[in-house]
Design a protein around this nucleic acid. Structure first.
Lengths: 341, 341
DNA sequence: CTGTTAGCGCTTTCAA
DNA sequence: TTGAAAGCGCTAACAG
């Protein structure tokens, strides 16, 4: 890799002159500029961003730390981040934590060392530690998708409470009275928020706390499968299942298929998170769809505001609305079930 | 961000001593080490990887340049790359080119500036330029998923020819004689390879070149939709459609649904690329499944070999086998159709 | 219009 | 066992 010194030598000028043509700063003679440009061309020279960054203390690099890029929801978030970053000539590093706080912390440390200008974080866990770590090192963070309690951070997320409320309300309106919510780990805000919205709808419909059937597991297919099995074993059996995310929903649907329970005739199923339209021929599942791309975009946009110093305001908590999409997986409960309710 | 100098001052030693405890190099007094470690702790010091990289000429950073992370196939490739990189304490930058050679070139230039140690590239186009660009700057590349002609590069990809052969053969064995292949852009090797495998199977079954129905478009849902519509308009109508990738397959299935054509009763459909099992309840499509994760992993592994200098051999062309998975979307052609064939 | 000096944070000599 | 000097590649500030 040629250096600025190599170019300077070849063009018969000083490194400073080369730097000037590179950055279009200061005055440069036409002939000098030409010579330099030729030398750059001939050597295939590209400036060393490391050296630059060392001086300027900015790397034009962001990091996206998330739980699993393989979840289509996060894939879309990632795309939103990358597009926005790219528009500002920033580059993005991505890191999968697999919901492990350890892995997350290890990554954050590496990212701090690499001097990333900012971090977009989908926290593995509801702990303020990662935020404090970054703040202590002067690295701006924006939290995506989840809330972290007890700490001041910019956050961009979906309105889980309202989304869950809406979809539960939808089931109630259809006549369901025994609705189970099968959700993720209680330590994650999306999970508790969804439960909160669910409860709110129940109470508003005249049901009591005792009517809530809340089953927590993990945001995975296998967890969804097991939760659904347990839900089916309940007496009385719920007439509708509310899956806390898309993975759980898939697990639930598989469990119902294996148990020979027809959807929606014998059981209504709804879910938070849509499935990617690129992998589905006939969307079937009634869902609350999250604005995944917008979350990535808006979060990154906020990060840029902070970097530009125009974010002196209080911590942002941007809550984007979810959209209820009613499809075929939800219907009225069967008579028999209603009578029992 | 504290520097090594800050730590040194606080510990009452020189920067060099701090450096030594950081890297466990040379002899250090026990008490000195303690003092230094305390200072590091108190300041929350993390070494500046930029400065280190500037000296060592290695950044412990790879880049993954692909067409669209939103394609579930590439998402899985990305995960394979990241896992392997992470295992070696490398970090990955990702870049979406959207199949645009311009965007690709822009990214490669930035990546060269940022001194990434290596690049994993899913080329947007069958041009040797990006490879030559990187080679000229001494940056190792491994091409993933696609071949690039007229240039020596390490490549890790699926055996598209054989995969296409197998799945076409499967259709032929079922009795199909009019099989249309609806594939991607002719400039991309995966596309031409799949057509080659398809033809090979046809010829081997005693059909002629004239029996091949080859329709090229783009690797997108809308292209798949249109190609299927055109295929349906052919006389005689094909009895089976072979989609060149997963997006095309979705488009095809939607077109058939809209046209009221039942699968597989009235039309068999098969596809290259499986759909992510995480978004599908009941896999239905007969596919050739690509080892996406392994492609990411193996490609990255090769990159590490090159970086470690233990890859003096001729360019690698690692061709991983695809797996035929027969499901419900393919069946025997109807009698009527067979008679016409 | 162009060049010299100094320094970003770190580590490899070479001395002490 | 520890420290001082020099340099990785680049550019701001100050000459000239």
């Amino acid at each position: 890799m040629a250096t600025i010194e190599d170019v300077a030598k070849r063009a018969g000028v000083s490194a400073m002159t080369v730097s000037r043509v590179l950055n279009n700063s200061g005055y440069i003679g036409v002939k000098t500029r030409e010579k330099v440009e030729r030398a750059i061309e001939e050597l295939g020279y590209v400036p060393n961003a490391l050296a630059r960054s060392l001086r300027f203390k900015t790397t034009h690099t962001l990091a996206l730390v998330l739980t699993d890029i393989t979840n289509s929801y996060f894939t879309t978030v990632a795309r939103g981040v990358e597009d926005m970053a790219n528009a500002r000539d920033f580059t993005v590093m991505f890191c999968n934590t697999d919901e492990s706080p350890d892995k997350e912390m290890k990554y954050l440390s590496v990212l701090a060392q690499k001097q990333v200008d900012g971090v977009l974080l989908v926290p593995a866990f509801s702990s303020p530690d990662p935020i404090l770590f970054l703040k202590a090192r002067g690295i701006p963070v924006v939290v995506l998708d989840r809330r972290i309690p007890d700490v001041e951070v910019d956050t961009v997320r979906t309105d889980s409470v309202r989304g869950a409320y809406q979809i539960t309300r939808h089931l109630l309106d259809l006549g369901h009275r025994r609705i189970a919510i099968l959700t993720g780990p209680v330590e994650i805000s999306t999970s508790t928020d969804r439960v909160a919205g669910y409860k709110q709808a129940l109470l508003e419909a005249g049901l009591s706390e005792a009517d809530a059937v809340i089953m927590g597991g993990a945001y995975t297919i296998s967890s969804g499968y097991q939760l659904a099995q347990r839900a089916l074993a309940l007496k009385p059996t719920p007439t509708a299942l509310f899956a806390g995310n898309n993975f759980i929903a898939i697990g639930v649907l598989r469990a119902l298929r294996d148990a020979g329970v027809r959807v929606p005739d014998e059981m209504s199923v709804v879910s938070f998170d849509d499935l990617p339209s690129t992998t589905v021929v006939d969307p079937f599942l009634t869902v609350v769809s999250q604005p995944a791309y917008a979350i990535g975009e808006q979060g990154t946009s906020r990060l840029f505001d902070v970097l530009a110093g125009r974010a002196q305001t209080a911590p942002l908590d941007l809550v984007l609305p979810a959209e209820l999409i009613v499809r075929q997986s939800s219907g009225a409960p069967r008579r028999k079930d209603q009578d029992m309710g």
